[in-house]
Design a protein around this nucleic acid. Structure first.
Lengths: 352, 352
DNA sequence: CTCAACTGAGAAAACCTTTTCCCAAAGGGT
DNA sequence: ACCCTTTGGGAAAAGGTTTTCTCAGTTGAG
């Protein structure tokens, strides 16, 4: 035993972190055996294993994730890269993701950046340097990618609510079916003159939701009430549409509206209400997003479509994990179903 | 040269990551020298240093952050632990934090959990295992801590928008001064009968904002217009207050209102507007939070107080970094000034 | 010319864990 | 009794970087 290195008998002085060395010494075994015992690997008598595990527990040993990452080439960390600084889409996704992965010992690195490509590059680089095992790319619209090139990115990637090529793996809400759900609800309540007020044509989501609106009407033999009205995704736009309707004679107004998002829906309702009309008596309104801070605060509270973003995050996390572990994963886009959340902006829900 | 280990002359086969070994070999120096050259440490001829740096650039070398963390005992990662899953407070803070730290090579681990202490424990443990250099504890109210014990936490901690003991280091907005700013603005516009509608008494922020309201009135020799009205932090509460006011004769109504948050302000404005009153002509309204999705969508757009949460995140990050680097840091709470954002809910701003 | 001081650069330990051998002892069959 | 197999456990390398020594060579002064 050389005196320079091997005199750790009495090193009570340094209260630093407890390592597997300490566990091994306490249990009277070698480091290798300790490692195997703690990871349920290798062969040894049950007694030895138990002794080591007890020692680890008594000492409060937790393996150093950094050292483990260095040797295993896995950091048990995944990155979530997004340009949705507002968090409207990303936060629910992140919540589902974290919840799904934390049990498996995987943490999530969230990087939100403004749409500056340079910031994107820096953050992506940081993640690569830190050896994240995989990447979730999350956006705020389904027809745009992030301003980064992932050319020869050596790690698996899953796209969520963001553009996704045919060879990629991605998750999106089934906007079309979700929209149809909303319109079916209106029809089920007896509405027949169903309009559609939504966002800019440039958004793919707009086209898909409009298709869903048309689908549901057609399935029930109804004609669209006018052409879809496209504007901005804002309360202001909904408000102006509501004002215009309020100025018309009742026979020229819709009796049901499917709005492309909750903000537009709220604008419509506010304008109608201010003009003396009653929602839902005169017109039923359905939104899209189920952004609770809007949907619940609207008077009356908004019936709307929920995209199940949290579930989307959960599934994306599980698929990414499979990829990290080398399991085969089918490429392509997965569309997750949406869900109708009934509040009071449409009237009484139909009897079950 | 033993043949088993040292035959990396022709290892073009494995396209794996470029390490400092490769750089050293390319530059014809030892690993140690390469490391020193790349970190601007040690002594060597400028030519050697330049040669190594050029080689590193040509090869596209980036140091492996995991290996570096293992040896330096610093991960260049800080954790942001929060129970604000909605992100109203945490996202701006995180944005400021990230922006401030990314230049210094430090990334941010965001962990948001519901108020379940078990989840908190698991996430905290994960951060410890991953050797984050420091922790930001962010909450959603200033008078509550997170449901975790940080007893002998071996890393530095900074609290942001969350309870902070005398020996801790924390950041909060100066609610009192911010509230006074709002009321001064109303007074400057000629308002004299200034009411206050705000959240539940149980929140410390409510008391502080109420004090600011009283401060500013007193400084101008004005009496409070009635007692502060306490309710929930919701549009619904503001709406009911607005309805009540609208039913009163003008002489018994306030001519200016300072609201405890933007949602209450919006509720007040909506109710007044629906009752046929005009904001700001009949009553000026100021909010608090500058939650843009509310403030901008209100009709008229809301003049409100911004807590500068992003700046708070920035400063918290810089202080935490100082602590990580062992610099002396003054303990205690720092209150950051708020800022008035003028929109159209108060009328014309006073001439400068 | 000698010695000290300095200079540039490399060898090796250290960070902590996992994993691949390898070895000694014990057990079993003939 | 001998050999082979199994068993339990350990030694050592590997992962990529930083850092501390150490050392050979060079320079300058006396």
């Amino acid at each position: 035993m050389s005196s320079s290195v091997e005199t750790p008998e009495e090193d009570v002085s340094v209260p630093g972190r407890i390592t597997i060395r300490d566990v091994a010494k306490a249990a009277g075994v070698s480091i290798a055996t300790a490692s195997k015992a703690l990871n349920d690997r290798g062969r040894m008598t049950p007694e030895t294993r138990a002794r080591i595990q007890t020692a680890a527990r008594d000492l409060g040993f937790t393996p150093n994730a950094v050292a483990r990452a260095l040797v295993s080439q896995r950091s048990f960390t995944i990155g979530l890269l997004t340009n949705d600084t507002y968090g409207r889409f990303t936060l629910p996704v992140a919540a589902g993701l974290s919840a799904a992965l934390i049990d498996r010992g995987v943490s999530v690195f969230l990087c939100a950046f403004q749409d500056d490509p340079e910031a994107a590059r820096v953050n992506l680089r940081a993640m690569q340097d830190k050896c994240v095992d995989g990447l979730i790319i999350a956006g705020k619209r389904i027809d745009r990618g992030l301003p980064i090139e992932l050319p020869r990115l050596s790690m698996p990637v899953v796209h969520v609510y963001s553009l996704c090529g045919d060879d990629d793996i991605g998750f999106m809400p089934d906007d079309r079916a979700g929209a149809a759900l909303a319109v079916q609800h209106l029809i089920g309540l007896g509405r027949r003159r169903i309009a559609h007020v939504t966002g800019p044509l440039a958004f793919a989501a707009v086209a898909q939701r409009t298709e869903g609106w048309a689908d549901a009407l057609k399935a029930h033999g109804l004609a669209p009430f006018g052409a879809p009205l496209n504007g901005t995704w804002s309360e202001g736009f909904g408000y102006s549409v509501g004002q215009a309707w309020a100025a018309l004679p009742p026979s020229e107004r819709p009796d049901g509206v499917f709005c492309g998002n909750d903000q537009i829906a709220r604008g419509v309702i506010d304008a109608l209400t201010l003009a003396g009309l009653n929602v839902p008596r005169d017109i039923s309104v359905v939104g899209f997003d189920n952004w609770s801070v809007f949907a619940e605060a609207t008077r009356p509270p908004l019936t709307t479509i929920d995209m199940n973003l949290q579930e989307m995050g959960r599934q994306a996390g599980l698929v990414l994990l499979d990829m990290v572990e080398g399991l085969p994963v089918e490429r392509g886009l997965r569309r997750l179903p949406c869900r109708l959340v009934t509040r009071q902006s449409c009237g009484v829900p139909p009897p079950a």
